[in-house]
Amino acid sequence: MEYWKDANEPIEAFVKLFEKGFKDPDLSGGLKKVNQLIWFDYTQDGPDCSFWVDCRGGELKTGPGKPDDEPNLTMSLSADDAHRSWSNKLNPVMAITRKKIRVKGSATGLLKLAPKLKKVAVLYVETLKELGRDDIIL
């Protein structure tokens, strides 16, 4: 991995990012509309390198690892590309076309979140700073 020291580090950052996002009215409103259980699968970088976001039923939860329930949507990519993605430095369409991101399940809900990636990137920078990882800010 180019940006991360071990498989735990990106998951800590991404879970923290979503916990921040849940507190933002705009982002949390958008996530609730997605209404899916999403598994972000980075296991190509280690068996524990993944986390989930549960937007179902008007509640928002997140945690490390694979969710207990079957996810509605799985997005598989590398932890480095995930870092680029949350930094809004990875064109998701391009990444999917080039098979850098593999999607299983319905991604139509996520389209609604695409316009909010800029805002997510701002929160992500804050998150990285709080974790002392200013060095990998893109």
Binding site: S106, A107, T108, L111, K112, A114, P115
Partner: peptide
């Protein structure tokens, strides 16, 4: 899948 689900206007929002 996106086109099937929401038609050619699926990404109007984006």
């Amino acid at each position: 899948e996106v086109l099937h689900e929401n038609g050619t206007a699926a990404n109007l929002i984006g």
